[in-house]
Amino acid sequence: LAGGFFTSIGGQTRSGFARLSNDTAALQNLAATQTTVTWTRGGSSPQFARVSFESSTDNVNYTLLGNGTATGSNWTLTGLNLPTRQNIYIRARGYYRSGQDNGSESTTESVRNAFALQQALLGNISTRAFVQTGDNVMIGGFIITGSGQKRVIVRAIGPSLVNFGITDPLQDPTLELHDHTGAVIAFNDNWMDAPNRQEIIDSGLAPSNNLESAILTSLSPGNYTAIVRGVNNGAGIALVEGYDLDPTAGSKLGNISTRALAQTGDNVMIGGFIITGTGQKRVIVRAIGPSLAQYGI
């Protein structure tokens, strides 16, 4: 039933009072992923002027996530970093005008229990190549995207590669980490000498050989370069790799690139990466050669 100051409604003559009938049901669905909440609405559902989304762990105390954006009759909030692998409650509240001269505001809400799975992410990126001297050392670059710091461990692996059939590994690799300006922000030669050696051990990713190098640190979004050299100009096959130690952070490992001398046989360049989480991850893998001439190679 509808009441108000009107003389017709729905094309029918009515004076101040009318009975409304819906030919379709009010349809809705509230869905959540780690990064996005969507409230899908249809049928005879009311149209909202605005929608807010909130989250809770106990269905009593709620925290505002933000206001949704309308796409037709649906409302979406993106750019979230919801906790994964635990039950949470998502509440959507829609507001629409009502009452005399639209002087009041009414609310419709929907609550659902959600269990967000971690999205597919690059969890590890690595390259194996033959490390020489001068311009032919191994140079690995990676980009951290998103917001907030990213806790990572970068490793230079050499001697332990004999366990995987490599007969000429780099016997004593060193590792330098540079920021986007080219400045050295960290250096390691032998991971056991690192000031945060225990933290490296606790990460579960300590190198198996004491002559190998590792840097565990937190980095802000930006471009970084890891350079692997041999002590006393040593040469041999080495592996440079980076691991994401905090996949739930707002920042992500977004790219890795490695420059090294690609040879033949066992000395070709081999890149590896691990995708963690659930679902598919869309990536592009490139092999660049001739165009490096414009950069002085």
Rank of each mutant, 00 (worst) to 15 (best):
A26F: 03
I153L: 05
L20F: 15
G11L: 01
R112G: 06
G4N: 10
T107Y: 06
G230P: 03
I256K: 03
S251G: 08
K281V: 02
L30Y: 10
S15K: 14
S73H: 07
Q86C: 04
G103F: 04
G250N: 10
G66H: 04
Q119Y: 11
V152R: 01
A2G: 15
K150E: 06
F115L: 09
G236C: 03
A238E: 03
R259I: 11
P195V: 08
N102E: 13
G242D: 02
Q263S: 10
D189E: 08
Q280C: 07
R93Q: 14
R85D: 13
R128A: 09
D135T: 11
G99F: 13
N59F: 01
A235K: 09
G204D: 04
I275T: 15
I143R: 09
N267W: 00
V111Y: 08
G94D: 01
G66W: 04
V162Y: 01
R128P: 03
P247C: 07
N22P: 07
I144S: 01
S220H: 09
L80H: 14
N209K: 05
W191C: 09
M269Y: 03
Q132Y: 07
T35L: 11
D179H: 08
G140V: 01
P169M: 02
Y224N: 04
A214T: 01
G204W: 05
T225V: 14
T225I: 13
I227E: 06
S98Q: 15
R85G: 11
S220A: 14
N190E: 11
Q118S: 11
P173E: 01
F142Y: 05
A129L: 06
T108H: 02
R197M: 15
T217R: 10
G4F: 03
R112N: 09
P169F: 03
V184F: 00
G234E: 10
D246R: 05
T181Q: 08
L30T: 12
T217H: 02
N59Y: 02
Q119T: 11
P83Q: 02
I270W: 00
A116V: 11
L245Y: 06
T84R: 00
Q198W: 05
L121Y: 10
P169D: 04
D23M: 11
T71C: 00
A92N: 12
R151H: 12
W75G: 01
I9T: 13
T108A: 07
N223G: 07
Y95E: 14
Q263M: 08
T217S: 08
K281F: 12
Q12A: 09
I297N: 14
I215C: 10
A49C: 01
G4L: 06
S208Y: 06
L216D: 08
D23I: 14
L27D: 11
S8L: 04
L177F: 06
T7R: 13
T40I: 04
G230E: 02
A49Q: 10
I215P: 08
Q171A: 13
V137P: 00
R259N: 12
G42R: 00
F130Q: 06
S55Q: 07
L82I: 15
Q47P: 02
T133D: 15
R197Y: 15
P173L: 01
I274G: 10
K252I: 12
T69E: 01
V154E: 00
L177H: 03
T36L: 12
R19G: 12
S213Q: 07
S220G: 09
R41F: 02
S126D: 14
W191T: 11
Y295L: 13
D168T: 15
Q149P: 08
Y295E: 14
